[in-house]
Amino acid sequence: MEERVMRLMRKGALSCSEDTSVREVAQIMLVNSTHYCVVINQSHEVLGIISARSILKAFGKDLRQAKAKDILVPYTFTITPSTPLREAIQLMDKRKIEHLIVVSDRPGSKAILGLLHVEDIVDRMAQDEER
């Protein structure tokens, strides 16, 4: 049977608001040892994601003034727990993103359920080879 995103996704995600300063976002990522931060609005809907590469966009700028909304990669595609894993991997490869936001299956929902991480896929590949 075809594997789905739900097999490997992690529930929950580190998040910040769109008005969080870039310096704070960098600190959130660093303190939590994560390479991403999801940007949400007041209704907890996903606006986009910030990676280490996104933070680089603000290099040389005043990081206390620059906001999360200035550097986020907008959330434009929908991955749900029932999306085939192979389809999610193709999306990661095509867009060069290592963390995919997973939202609810409900139509139009932008409530975040969790994330699919590239390292979890590599981990699964290593485990499969050990079997």
Binding site: S15, A26, Q27, M29, V31, I40, I55, A58, S104, I112
Partner: peptide, 29 residues
């Protein structure tokens, strides 16, 4: 590594940063 440099946090000073505001939270459904 560059984000670490940009954040201005010195290695070994994470404890202070962990006392940051409550709005820095982990969201879950």
């Amino acid at each position: 590594d560059i984000v670490r440099y940009m954040s201005g946090i010195e290695t070994g000073h994470y404890e202070q940063i962990l006392k940051m505001p409550q709005e820095w939270s982990t969201s879950s459904p």
